[in-house]
Design a protein around this nucleic acid. Structure first.
Lengths: 368, 368
DNA sequence: TATTTTAACTTGTACGTACATCATCTTCAG
DNA sequence: CTGAAGATGATGTACGTACAAGTTAAAATA
């Protein structure tokens, strides 16, 4: 590599601009044609110079818009990229999660990255092990679905350690408020609200809610459910909320059964997800009641299960695969020093209610 | 980065030579001018291709003497254990696969190994990319679910190269007969037989079969289906078998619909899997027929879907999570030099028929 | 005003040429 | 037989052109 070759000179000049602070991180540098005029060299030479700087991580190019100064050159500890992204999930076989994973994998592989996976089974001790593994694996970035996010997390120090190692991470579905990391989540409160509002507008008054209490998603959906009651000035009634945890699902379903057998049975039911909705649907069938005739049911997640049954479930939908793609996109952008549009690290997806056959209007006079 | 650009093609071809073992570490590759003639492109394009590969660490150049294959790969042969196991699957969000993955992950993490995942979407080109990624990732072992296993596979050389690098691999669900690798599979032929025999013993004679034709699982299940007809000396009838591929599922379901509308409609239906069974169930409902009243349906996989519907599906069950655990166990045993008890590298799981509500006995008078 | 289309500008790919620089093998002189 | 000069062929630098493809903002249209 000749020291006095033209492209080296151009390279060094541009590098100087960056080091002197004339070009700040994220800012656009001169276009190739401008550099051609400036230095009086050919475009090929300019591209060669820029190519080296891109390779070394000083710049990045964006097709059609320009060449920019990289963001993370300051504390660049010269870790060589392993092209591995870690992903920690709660349940691997959860019926909803594969679509997120698929989105992540799709984008990662298109960018030449690989995916290292681990799952916690919603156990905090296991989460700790996963984080330890990831830290020892030389990953470039980490995507985490937090475990038991509704309670305090003892593994905070690991996440802080990630920051010290300059490994970007991002949380999906939920996030630990204590560290307020970049996150992609669905507005579950709104989702719960939409589901409940739907039944209220259909004239239902006695609407039962069953929610999972050991993660934030469940807690938030429940909030939305309660909000809807408040907003429509509906009275609360006893036993209107059933909560369950990973360990107590079965017995709580049995509880629902006895509630449905009582004569004061509810006319509507908001479920934490489609899986629970189907469990309840089974109970309803065994009691010789009909859906939506005797009971309207709303699910959540709009999963494959929602349309598997004879009664297609009304369910709250959210962009699962898209969230995976976005997560991968953001983590890679951060790794490669690209700045995302408007600086915001996080995004909240709006849920949407898909009305199918499992809910119906109550034919009472009270409905406007 | 256009995938079909010339320099990418040249790059991939050269990378192939390395990964297939045609060019060994330290060896000189063709000179730029030779490559120009070989590919019929300009020298600039060749240099661009080589530039990328040098950048990625596959090659290095020596001014005046030539371009050589990096010996970074050589260090991998006497590599220290990375404690990484690669897993290549077809569909990540397939409703059946998560349980296998869960089994794999469970055992791997208990043994301190990590899981690197990639999926092919049942596309052979993508499988090639996945294998390339895995080969370049320093993995200790590889678990593969083969892609389009019913047709010839163009990626054989990659598997052979794995052997050269002393990386054990194992196939699940299906396997390429050409290389006869260690494999864990379900006896799908028997599964298809069991399902069909069940309907025959219930007095059915006109039994339709719908199978996926682009993977071996489908072909084998179909074999079992045909075997059952032979064994029970039942006559074959026209249109008794419908086959579909990944791309043509929808239209074939429509075909089933018209068969069911005809007056000579079948009384039984053997489905490739539960997903198809549910699709057909939807069609049956829309025709105002009843299951199992007018039509008995048998699914396959005994998945979550089988019990999601109001008519619980009779389905063929097989040990999904167990297969994952076994796969992980065997691959790690091989890595760590442990010998497995009975010497056999492969195992065939016996499927089991779970009889539920979607099938019923035909009373003899109705049977013509 | 809001939306669509167009034009201008950006980087990406691909071809061509010429000569410089370095390593290696061949040839020839000693 | 040995050493130096030269021929050959490899990569490195540098110039040029042309068009493709993506982005953005101005201009035209509804």
């Amino acid at each position: 590599m000749k020291e006095n070759s033209k492209y080296i000179q151009v390279k060094n000049q541009i590098k100087d601009w960056i080091l002197e602070g004339k070009v700040k991180p994220g800012e656009k540098i001169y276009s190739e044609n401008e550099l051609v005029k400036l230095f009086g060299v050919s475009r090929h030479t300019v591209r060669q110079a820029i190519g080296v700087l891109v390779h070394e991580g000083w710049l990045y190019r964006e097709h059609g818009s320009g060449t920019f100064c990289s963001n993370r050159l300051l504390q660049q500890t010269k870790r060589e990229s392993s092209k591995n992204i870690g992903v920690i999930t709660t349940y691997m076989s959860d019926y909803i999660f594969p679509s997120i994973i698929r989105g992540i994998e799709q984008y990662l592989s298109s960018q030449g990255y690989s995916l290292i996976m681990a799952s916690t089974n919603n156990d905090l001790e296991k989460e700790k092990q996963c984080l330890q593994t990831m830290l020892s694996k030389n990953i470039d970035g980490l995507i985490v679905e937090p475990t038991k996010s509704s309670s305090a997390n003892p593994n905070i120090s690991y996440y802080l350690n990630l920051e010290q190692h300059n490994i970007p991470y991002l949380m999906i579905n939920q996030y630990y408020k204590e560290i307020n990391p970049p996150h992609l989540v669905v507005d579950d409160e709104k989702g719960g609200f939409l589901a409940t509002e739907h039944l209220i507008q259909y004239g239902h008054k006695k609407i039962l809610g069953i929610f999972k209490s050991d993660d934030l998603q469940g807690v938030n959906r429940m909030k939305g459910y309660i909000d809807a009651f408040r907003k429509y000035n509906l009275p609360f009634f006893p036993d209107m909320i059933v909560t369950y945890t990973t360990e107590t699902k079965e017995e709580k379903i049995a509880e629902i059964r006895s509630l449905l057998e009582g004569k004061e049975r509810p006319t509507g039911l908001i479920c934490y997800n489609d899986d629970v909705a189907l469990s309840v649907l089974n109970v309803v069938r065994s009691l010789n009641l009909s859906v939506p005739g005797d009971l309207s049911i709303v699910g959540y997640d709009d999963s494959q299960l929602a349309t598997a049954s004879e009664v297609k479930l009304t369910s709250v939908s959210h962009p699962k695969t898209q969230m995976g793609i976005d997560a991968a996109k953001r983590i890679i952008a951060k790794i490669e020093g690209k700045s995302l549009e408007n600086g915001t690290d996080s995004f909240v997806y709006e849920p949407e209610l898909i009305v199918r056959e499992s809910t119906k209007k109550l034919s009472s006079k009270i409905v406007t």
